[in-house]
C-alpha cells in the first residue's frame, strides 16, 4: 500500500475552448508521484503547469486520459466524488486567499472543519498546533489584514497542512513574497511535508526553490519535456 503512487497520470490530454477556438493545453502527459516526495513543476508561462495542478487537484474534469489520485480514477468521477477527494488535499495558492473576516486560527480551522464529525476543540487544537509549526503561535487571533505577506502565506501553509493531507498542491506560493519570506515558506513546506509524509507538487518559476526539489518536472507547450531526479535526498 505504501508504495502505491499518490498520483498516476497516463496519456492525459486537455483542451480549452470549443470549436474553432479549441486549443490543446496538455498533450500526452505521463507522470507518477510516489508518497512523500517534493516535486517541482517548472516551465514557461502558458506551458500548462496550472492546468496539470487543477486536474490532479480535482478542480477540473479530466477530458482524456487517466488521472488516478490515491487509487481513484478522476476521469468520469462525479462532482460529489471530486469534492470528497478534495477534502484529502491541501491547496496553497499564489495569493494567500485567507478569509478577511476570520482570524488566523479560524482560517486554519477551516482547513480541518471540512471533515464532518470532527469535534470543535479538536479542530481548534489542531489549528493552533499547525500555526505553531509555521511560527505563528503569537498571531492566532490576528485578522489577515494585520499580518505581513509572508505571515499570511504561512497561515495558508498551516491551513493546507492542518488536515494531514496526502497531497499538497501549491501554485507559485512564493511569487508574491520577498526573498526571505519565500525561502521561509518553501522550507516550511518541505520540512513539514517530509515530517508528515506528505507528497508535495509545487509549481514555480522561482529558481531559488529548485535546490529544494527531489524531482523537477519541466513542461513546455503542454508537453512534459524533462524529468530530473535531483540528489537532494
Amino acid at each position: 500500500m505504501d508504495s502505491d503512487p499518490i498520483v498516476e497520470v497516463r496519456g492525459l490530454n486537455h483542451w480549452f475552448g470549443t470549436g474553432e477556438a479549441r486549443k490543446l493545453a496538455l498533450s500526452n502527459i505521463n507522470m507518477t508521484l510516489t508518497r512523500g516526495g517534493f516535486t517541482v513543476l517548472m516551465g514557461p508561462s502558458g506551458s500548462g503547469k496550472t492546468t496539470v495542478l487543477t486536474l490532479v487537484g480535482c478542480l477540473r474534469a479530466v477530458q482524456e486520459g487517466s488521472v488516478r489520485l490515491m487509487g481513484h480514477e478522476l476521469n468520469g468521477a462525479s462532482a460529489k466524488e471530486l469534492t470528497a477527494l478534495r477534502q484529502r488535499l491541501g491547496f496553497i495558492f499564489q495569493a494567500h486567499n485567507l478569509h478577511e473576516s476570520l482570524t488566523a486560527l479560524q482560517n486554519v480551522i477551516m482547513g480541518v472543519q471540512v471533515r464532518p464529525g470532527l469535534p470543535d476543540d479538536l479542530a481548534r487544537h489542531a489549528a493552533a498546533r499547525a500555526l505553531g509549526l509555521v511560527g505563528l503561535s503569537d498571531r492566532l487571533d490576528y485578522l489577515p489584514a494585520k499580518l505581513s505577506g509572508g505571515q499570511k502565506q504561512r497561515v495558508a501553509v498551516a491551513r493546507a497542512l492542518v488536515g494531514n493531507p496526502a497531497l499538497v498542491l501549491a501554485d507559485e506560493p512564493t511569487a508574491a513574497l520577498d526573498k526571505d519570506s519565500a525561502s521561509d515558506v518553501v522550507d516550511l513546506l518541505k520540512r513539514l511535508g517530509a515530517r508528515r509524509g506528505t507528497t508535495t507538487l509545487l509549481v514555480t518559476h522561482d529558481n531559488r526553490i529548485l535546490d529544494r526539489a527531489d524531482r523537477i518536472l519541466t513542461l513546455e507547450d503542454g508537453r512534459l519535456v524533462s524529468v530530473k531526479e535531483t540528489a537532494a535526498e
Partner: peptide, 8 residues
C-alpha cells in the same frame, strides 16, 4: 472558491 477547493 477557496472553501470549494478545500472540499466544502
Amino acid at each position: 472558491a477557496t472553501f470549494k477547493a478545500m472540499g466544502y
